[in-house]
Amino acid sequence: MKSKFRRRRKVVFDSGVMITIPAESIWLIDISPNKKNYMDPSKQMTDIVGCRFVTLVSSDIEIVERALIGFSGWTVTRERHYADEVAAKPGEFDYQSVHYLAICFQEFTHGGTIIPEGTTCEVQLRSLLQHAYAELVHDNIYKADQYVPQSTKRLVARSMALMEATDEMFCSVARELDDVNRSQRFWYACLDTKFKEITGIGFYSSLDEHTLIILERFRELLRTVSLAEVTRMFEAMAYRTKIAERQDLELFSKPICVLVFWLAKHRFDDLSNDWPLASLDSDVAEIASFVGFSWH
């Protein structure tokens, strides 16, 4: 009999990476039935004690793996990985999970409980979709006491194919959002530093809506621009003075104005064609006029 305990939490690893664990299970198996007739089940059974981490998407599994492998005090070996099984049988869509065995190589005490040397813990890692499949299929299909129609098995395989495709799309969404957020944080931090240097005012604690809209609109353009190009412009005192003197204007009072000045001077056509905030047109017009252009 397997006793389970579940909880939901966020996990922060030593690397500083944080992922959300939708479900974390810890189990303890009653070895008294001993169906496989082990001579010494407490030593021969490797999953008497175990835990399972269920991540939102499969790409997060790698983060948990790195943390697990780097954990001191335990010898960790990988026993199963769905990627190996997919590579071996690419035409099959079946149960997917990552299994590790963690063996304590010396006795220690944790939370008042003595953990004997040689204690083995099975650690399972799955995405949320992989876990949903496993929970439905494991007892109802693979270990079912009753007959399971071939049509049902086919439906199960089709469901895993759909889940695999869905997870891949979710991972792509997560990567794209991470890329966008990383770019936004980088540019805002740099612009804030320059803005504070010019005005003595720092705003890094708040990424306001206008800034987000502007950074998103010019995201592709900024991939081709170096920070040095933007900040070099402000070696000229005239630009610094203009920003410092016009803090009464909304755009001038935000770090993003540093980028808008550069765009007006060096990418005016892009700025004019793609400017997303009509409410700040008068502020942009003043910047454009200052660098020698006429705003529409």
Rank of each mutant, 00 (worst) to 15 (best):
P149C: 07
Y147K: 09
T166K: 08
T166Y: 04
V156I: 10
L155H: 04
E117Q: 14
A144F: 15
R126T: 10
P149D: 10
L162N: 07
T152M: 15
T152L: 15
K153N: 08
N140K: 10
M163D: 00
N140Q: 11
P149E: 08
I141Q: 00
L129Y: 06
A134N: 06
Y133F: 14
E122T: 01
Q130I: 12
A134K: 02
A165N: 07
L128W: 11
S151P: 01
A165Y: 03
Y142R: 01
A134Y: 14
K153H: 13
A134S: 14
D167P: 02
M160G: 01
Y142G: 00
Q150Y: 15
D167T: 01
E117L: 12
E135G: 06
T166I: 03
Q150P: 02
L129N: 08
R158P: 00
D167I: 01
H138K: 05
V123E: 10
Y133A: 08
M163A: 11
M163S: 10
S151C: 05
T152V: 14
A157D: 08
M160Q: 12
E168R: 07
M160L: 04
E117F: 05
E164R: 15
S127Q: 06
S127E: 10
R126D: 05
T120D: 06
K143T: 15
I141D: 00
Q150R: 09
L128N: 12
T152Y: 14
A165C: 04
E135P: 02
K153I: 10
E168C: 04
T119R: 01
S151Q: 09
Q146M: 12
E117T: 15
E164I: 05
L128A: 13
H131Y: 13
V148T: 07
M163E: 00
E164P: 00
L155N: 05
V137E: 01
E122I: 01
Q130A: 05
S127M: 07
H138G: 03
V148Y: 12
M160F: 03
R126H: 09
E168I: 09
R158A: 13
K143W: 08
D167A: 02
Q124P: 06
T120G: 05
Q130N: 04
M160V: 04
A157G: 06
